[in-house]
Design a protein around this nucleic acid. Structure first.
Length: 435
RNA sequence: GCGGAAUUGGUGAAGUGGUUAACACGCCGGAUUGUGGCUCCGGUAUGCAUGGGUUCGAUCCCCAUAUUUCGCCCCA
C-alpha cells in the first residue's frame, strides 16, 4: 500500500466540514478588518528563506524541504508565510501604493521536522502582514485579529502573551546583558543552555530544564533594558489593547527565535487540559528590519501566523461544537430504470433551483434507500413511481412529520418551499427573513 | 538529528508458536416481491503494517524499514 508522506494528513469527512467552517470565519473576519487576500507561491528560491531567517540557524540547515529544479535553481518549499509576502511586496513595488498594505494568506507550509502532536510536516497556516506602518495601533489591531477569531469560535481557554524586545539598540544591549549575567553561571546551566549562551541567549529564558533555577528568576528582563522610546511605544500598544478590552499578560521571557523581530512580540496559547507541548495557536511580532534585509526600502512590518490544525485541535479539546450543515433537502428514491431516468431529470432541475439534492447511486433496494436517506438526514423524500409520473403526479414525504402526499408535479417547488423554509408572517417572499 | 511506546477487516477491538482469527458496531441481502429508522435470520479479513530471519510450522519470537504517537532539539 502506498501511504501518505510522514507528517502529512488527509482532511476529509467531518473534519473537512470543520475546516471549511473555520476558513469561512477567517474570511469574514478579515473582510471586516479590510485585509486583502494574497496568494504567493508554495515554493520560492532558497535564498529568500535563507536571507530572511539567517544562514546559521537550525531552521535553515536542517528543517526545510529543499530541491534543485530542472533548471538547476535551488528552491525551497515555503516553511512560513512572511518571507513570500515580503518578497511580493518588494517585487510588485507595493511600497508605492497607499500604505499600509494589509494582507492575509491561508495556505500550506512545509517543515522537515520530526512530527509530534500539533506539529506536522505539511501544515496549514493563515496569517496577516501589515507593511508600511510603525503605528502602535497596528500592533494592537494585529493582536486583536486572532483574539477575535478565537472569540467567535467560542474558544475559552486561551491566553494572550505579549512582550517587547525593543528596537535594535535595546535588543542588543539586552543580549549583552544576558550573556554577561549567565556566563559566570555557565556550569549551572543545562547542556543545551550552554550552547544557547552563544547561539541564542534569549532562548535560555525559555528553557524547560533550567526554569526552576534561582539564577533564572533573577535574570535580566527585557523590559528593564528598553530605551525610553521603546518603553513609551510598548505602553501605547498595551493602552490600545486595554481599550479593545483584550486580556493579555506581559511575559518578559517571551522571545521570538529570529533576529529580525523587534518591539512587539506575542503569542496565543491554548491552555485546555491535554493539549500537549505544542500549544501556541498563533504567534507573531513586529519586524521592522525585514523588508530592507530582503532588498526593499526601509519599511515597517508586523504580522502573525496561526495554525489551522492546532485551532481545530483546540476546538476539539474544548468540546466546542461547530455548526455544520450535514443534512440534505431532498432525497429521491426510485426502483426501475424509467424512474431512474426521471430522477436524473429531477435532480438536475432541483439543484439548479438551489436545493441540496441526493439520490441513489448503487441500485439498492427501496428499503436500503430509505435507510440511506435517513443516514444523510434528508428532510424531504421523493418516492418516484412510473405510473404516477405518467399521470403527472409525484409522491413526496416530509421526513420530519412523516406526512406523505401525492401532488401534481408542477406543485413540487411550492411544496419544497413550504416544507423546507420557515415563512415569516410579514408577507414578503424571502425565506427566513429577519422581520 | 536524539529517545520511549504502538501497528490485527470499513470501525472499536479480543486472541494464540500448530487445521476454519472471538465479540460488537457498521455495511449488504432477506423476513416485509415499492415505504425505512425496532426485531429476527443470513452474508461480510487478497488473513494479523512491509521486508528479512529463527522454526517442521509464525499473526504471535528476533532484526530492519515504514507509518502513528509521546517527549528532546528547534520552533519561522
Amino acid at each position: 500500500m502506498i501511504t501518505k508522506p510522514k507528517g502529512c494528513y488527509d482532511i476529509y469527512g467531518k473534519e473537512a466540514k470543520n475546516w471549511q467552517f473555520l476558513n469561512q470565519i477567517i474570511d469574514e473576519v478579515m473582510t471586516n478588518y479590510n485585509y486583502n487576500f494574497i496568494r504567493t507561491p508554495i515554493f520560492e528560491s532558497t535564498e529568500l528563506f535563507h536571507r530572511g531567517v539567517g544562514e546559521t540557524t537550525d531552521i535553515v540547515t536542517k528543517e526545510t524541504y529543499d530541491f534543485i529544479d530542472r533548471g538547476n535553481r535551488p528552491m525551497t518549499l515555503r516553511p512560513e508565510g512572511t518571507a513570500g509576502v515580503v518578497r511580493s511586496f518588494i517585487e510588485n513595488k507595493m511600497y508605492g501604493e497607499n500604505l499600509p498594505v494589509k494582507v492575509y494568506y491561508n495556505g500550506t507550509m512545509y517543515r522537515y521536522e520530526r512530527p509530534q502532536s500539533g506539529r506536522d510536516r505539511e501544515l496549514t497556516q493563515f496569517g496577516v502582514e501589515v507593511l508600511g506602518s510603525d503605528d502602535e495601533l497596528v500592533d494592537a489591531e494585529v493582536i486583536s485579529i486572532p483574539v477575535n477569531i478565537f472569540k467567535i469560535l467560542g474558544l475559552q481557554e486561551i491566553k494572550v502573551n505579549i512582550n517587547s524586545l525593543g528596537d535594535t539598540e535595546s535588543r542588543n544591549i539586552y543580549r549583552e546583558a544576558l550573556i554577561n549575567y549567565f556566563t559566570p553561571y555557565k556550569e549551572n546551566l543545562c547542556e543545551d543552555c550552554q550552547k544557547r549562551l552563544e547561539k541564542n541567549p534569549l532562548r535560555i529564558l525559555d528553557c524547560k530544564i533550567d526554569k526552576e533555577l534561582d539564577i533564572m528568576k533573577k535574570a535580566p528582563v527585557t523590559i528593564d533594558y528598553l530605551n525610553e522610546e521603546s518603553k513609551i511605544r510598548f505602553d501605547k500598544v498595551k493602552k490600545y489593547l486595554d481599550e479593545m478590552e483584550i486580556n493579555y499578560e506581559v511575559v518578559p521571557t517571551l522571545v521570538r527565535g529570529l533576529d529580525y523581530y523587534n518591539h512587539t512580540v506575542f503569542e496565543i496559547e491554548a491552555k485546555v487540559e491535554g493539549f500537549g507541548s505544542n500549544n501556541v495557536l498563533a504567534a507573531g511580532g513586529r519586524y521592522n528590519g525585514l523588508v530592507k534585509l530582503l532588498g526593499g526600502p526601509e519599511t515597517s512590518g508586523i504580522g502573525f501566523a496561526a495554525g489551522i490544525g492546532r485551532i481545530l485541535l483546540a476546538l476539539q479539546k474544548e468540546k466546542i461544537n461547530i455548526p455544520i450543515n450535514d443534512s440534505v433537502d431532498v432525497f429521491i428514491l426510485y426502483v426501475n430504470e424509467e424512474e431512474k431516468s426521471y430522477s436524473a431529470k429531477l435532480t438536475q432541475a432541483l439543484r439548479l433551483s438551489g436545493f441540496i439534492v441526493e439520490t441513489e447511486y448503487n441500485n439498492r433496494s427501496l428499503k436500503s434507500q430509505f435507510k440511506q436517506a435517513d443516514r444523510l438526514n434528508s428532510k424531504i423524500l421523493i418516492i418516484l413511481n412510473s405510473e404516477e409520473i405518467n399521470n403527472g403526479k409525484i409522491k413526496v414525504k416530509n421526513n420530519t412529520t412523516k406526512e406523505e402526499k401525492l401532488i401534481n408535479i408542477e406543485e413540487l417547488i411550492d411544496y419544497l418551499d413550504d416544507n423546507l423554509f420557515e415563512h415569516c408572517d410579514c408577507g414578503c417572499e424571502e425565506h427566513n427573513c429577519d422581520c
